[in-house]
Design a binder for these strands. Structure first.
Lengths: 200, 200
DNA sequence: TTACTTTTTCTAACAGTGTTAGCAAAGATA
DNA sequence: TATCTTTGCTAACACTGTTAGAAAAAGTAA
């Protein structure tokens, strides 16, 4: 009897309808504005049916996160396949990753939980400039003492900040304790590379 | 007349009481669990008095963010002052930044809006391992072809991922458009340094 | 077709959230 | 003492995630 199959298919359709509605709302108003009730309105069903397919709101976000990584993966595969040497592959992947993030800002924000205290107001924080100047000072000195005095200190400042932030935020996210020593090594690796990169 | 002074002082006390209560709640239950009503309960005042000192909840978070950067700045100043050469200063600052993040996780999360879809469940995403393997492949090849075949590919993978993520998330946060070219240059700078770092 | 069972779907509620209008009480001024 | 200003509160509005329990629909068996 095909009834069970049809029911299964309908359940699947409902599930994807929920996810599509959720995604539509996310790219429309940002993932912070996503609500179960809005999803219910879009799919034209009552609220509790959503809970028949997802345990809670977080499970929906998690599924979108999964989709995001899936899409990113496929972009990376494409980047790899179109390049020959490992150098080119790495470069292509870096660009693909970068492009993915900015062409799919909503995805990236869901994937990494970005986008709170409100991105727009971060610029209001005056302490950020103090922070920048603080790091800038020794970087400038190092550049002056190095072999390439034309190096842009702001560029290096950005590299410094981004690297540290990325390392930390990825480490904070994954509770995997066994990786802590690994990350400390990455930190050391980065510092050494950063300094020698300025000098030479 | 000292009445105006006293009133001003009392207003200030109320303000700091709100911020202290908010902070206490943040380190207790995480910044996502922070609510105006809980703050009101802690300071033993009704809810609307909070709105006499802060426009909205976000303003409170923003102030905590500001405090976070202030504290980070003072840590960096300390790190700088205790080191002599720019190399040592940069290294000390990197470690200070790192330490600050992990000794003040709550601060760091508020500062960078981290900690959504729930950090704990990120590990459930199977696509992450696919992603890792994808990047790992060319990195391994590059290491094998380089002068230092003992280099840990996982370490390099982590560097790669962290750097990209840091660069992107900082760029996504600050809407400052004029910096986009700068960041593209940082990206190039990073890729070049990353590859040459593996080779040599 | 009818009676029964299972599945699906909904209404309504609970407990919580940010935010604000409007009133009451307290404090300051004359 | 009377007036004005500041301060603080109650109560509400419009949301949020989540769930219990009733109603409706769909499937099954006689």
């Amino acid at each position: 009897m095909g009834i069970a199959e049809r029911k299964k298919r309908q359940r699947e359709e409902m599930r994807t309808a929920i996810l599509e509605a959720a995604w539509q709302l996310v790219i429309q108003d940002g993932w912070q504005a996503l609500s179960i009730r809005k999803i219910a309105e879009v799919i034209e069903y009552s609220v509790p049916v959503i809970y028949d397919h997802f345990a809670n709101k977080e499970a929906i976000l998690l599924e979108l996160t999964r989709q995001g990584f899936q899409k990113l993966n496929s972009e990376l595969v494409k980047a790899i396949s179109q390049s020959a040497s490992p150098e080119q592959q790495i470069e292509a992947m870096a660009y693909a990753y970068w492009r993915f993030a900015f062409e799919n800002t909503a995805y990236y924000q869901v994937m990494y939980g970005l986008g709170i205290p409100s991105c727009e107001t971060v610029n209001q924080i005056s302490e950020l400039s103090t922070f920048s100047e603080l790091v800038l000072q020794p970087v400038k000195q190092l550049i002056a003492a190095g072999k390439n005095p034309a190096t842009d200190p702001f560029l290096k400042l950005h590299t410094f900040w981004s690297m540290l932030h990325g390392l930390i935020s990825i480490n904070i996210m994954s509770v995997n304790e066994s990786k802590e020593e690994l990350n400390l090594m990455v930190l050391k690796d980065f510092i050494a590379g950063f300094i020698s990169g300025i000098k030479s």
